[in-house]
Structures are given as structure tokens and as C-alpha cells.
Nucleic acid binder design. Structure first.
Lengths: 134, 134
DNA sequence: TCAGCACACTTGAATGATTCAAGTAAAGGA
DNA sequence: TCCTTTACTTGAATCATTCAAGTGTGCTGA
């Protein structure tokens, strides 16, 4: 664990679902110039090591957060991309029980609620860009 | 609705969570040469019109399916990328009720179960590439 | 009949997050 | 001291997707 990686952890835990670019900026602020590739590399290592959780909502760059292991989910705004944590509706981790697992060995459930955040609701009058129905 | 778009619908409904490239091939088989951009364009239109559902698992290209409106979810294999449908664990559509919606206007819930499909389980001995824990 | 227009489609180029490749430097172990 | 591993650097490549600009076709209203 190097200074750069510590700075990544600090930046991520101090931010709110940051993307790689934002993390990179934060790390540079803390410890001086660090290459973007080092950030990618370290984020991967930290993620595989279970220290960071990776969030990849469709159509937007990867984001990271330090809240791991508590099986919470995410609200994503279709308009501004803002991400908000929500606790698991089922109640306890892990909610890894699909109705039928079809023989799969399930190790993670990714739940994303798509919608409009309060701010965008007020601004756009409750009309998401492309009304995806599901 | 043109021949090309009809061919897209037929290809997607006859396939299994196809990606854009596969759909493009299928459409060309049915109605002759069609540009990739036309396929992208039409897929977008069909998706916005509610005729196709879009699935975008992290780290793999967008896929489409014709099963819309029944709020089912997906099992995705970490190793081979195979996608399998699962019915909603909650039971009835829409399972759009996060524990707290934080003021969001939620219109869709995307649930992806990550794991190993039966085939990859047998081959790799139940070891996903990067053991993401959650 | 014809201008105007919307729309599906074409070709070609651009974007942008991410990954790959190859090399350097520092730390740790034998 | 040598060797190996690991973190990091610079630079280039990849690839799905989108943007831009132009072409042809069919419909509508005058």
C-alpha cells in the first residue's frame, strides 16, 4: 500500500460515487502528479481486494465508493447522472436470491433504480429523456 | 415501420440477448445490406418506443431483448458473459420500491445477478475471475 | 403537379473510457 | 549483491457508440 493508493482510498471515501477522472484529480491534489493509468491500476487492485465497490450504470463511466459489503443499492438519475445510495429493500445482505438461479453460482446482486432525482424533477417537470418503461 | 426495422424485431426476438453486432448480422441476412448506423438508430427508436428492452451489463456491450414490461431480471456470467432471464423475486411488476426513494421518481429497476453459469462452474471450478464481494 | 418536409438510411469521421505494451525505479528476499 | 516483484510512467491502441452531413423516398397541402 503506497501513498498513491492511500490517497485513492481517501479521495473515494471523501467523495460521492466519484468517477475515475475525479479520483485522479483528487489523488493529484493530495500527493502530486500521478498518472491516470496508475489510478486505473490501483482502483482495479483495490476493487479486487474488496476495499472498493465499483458501480457501472449503463451509459456512464465507472464510479467507485468505499461502502462495501453491506449490499446497498443505487438510485441513478436519468438526466443528471447523480447516484444516491439506498438500503436493500429486502433488508439483509446478501439479497442474492433470484427466484431461480438457473444453476448459476451467484455472488453479487446489482440493483439500480432508474429515475429522476428531486432536482431534475423540479427542473424538467417529471419527464425523463427517453421514457423507458419496464 | 420499415422492412429493416421489422427485421430487427424478428432478429432480436429470435435470438437470445443479442448484441448490436449480432443483430446487424441477422438483419443483413434477412433483408440484405443495412448499415450499422441504421441498426443503432432503429434500436434506439424501438427501445424508446417500448418495443425492445436494453440490457447493459457492466463491461460488456449493449444487448437487446423483446421481453418487455414484465419486470424480469438477469443472471450474468462473469466468465463467459452469458445472460439468462430470471423472474422477479418480488413477484409482481414493478418491483420499483426501494426502501427509500430519496425523492426520486423511479421508473425502472435494473437487477443483475452476477455469478458463474453452470458451464463455467464446471470448467473453472467455481472461481470467478476477480472475486468481487458484496 | 410540384414544392416542402419528415424520416429512414448511407458513408465517413470523431469521441472517450478503458486497456495494452514496454520500459523505469524502488522495495524486499535470498 | 543479485534477483524478483510491484508500483508507476509514457505512449499507443481498442472498440462500442455517437456525431455530422448528405441522399433518396413517401406524404401532405397548395
Amino acid at each position: 500500500m503506497t501513498a498513491a493508493r492511500l490517497a485513492i482510498l481517501q479521495t473515494v471515501s471523501g467523495g460521492d460515487h466519484l468517477d475515475v477522472e475525479a479520483i485522479h484529480r483528487g489523488v493529484c491534489d493530495r500527493v502530486g502528479q500521478v498518472s491516470l493509468q496508475a489510478v486505473y491500476d490501483s482502483l482495479n487492485a483495490l476493487h479486487c481486494g474488496g476495499l472498493l465497490r465499483r458501480i457501472e450504470p449503463a451509459g456512464s463511466p465507472t464510479r467507485y465508493e468505499t461502502r462495501v459489503g453491506d449490499n446497498h443499492h443505487h438510485l441513478v438519475c436519468r438526466t443528471c447522472g447523480r447516484i444516491t445510495d439506498v438500503d436493500c429493500a429486502v433488508g439483509h445482505a446478501p439479497c442474492l436470491d433470484p427466484a431461480s438461479d438457473a444453476g448459476y453460482l451467484v455472488d453479487e446482486a446489482d440493483v439500480i433504480y432508474w429515475g429522476l432525482c428531486p432536482r431534475c424533477r423540479a427542473e424538467t417537470g417529471s419527464a425523463p429523456p427517453c421514457p423507458a418503461r419496464d
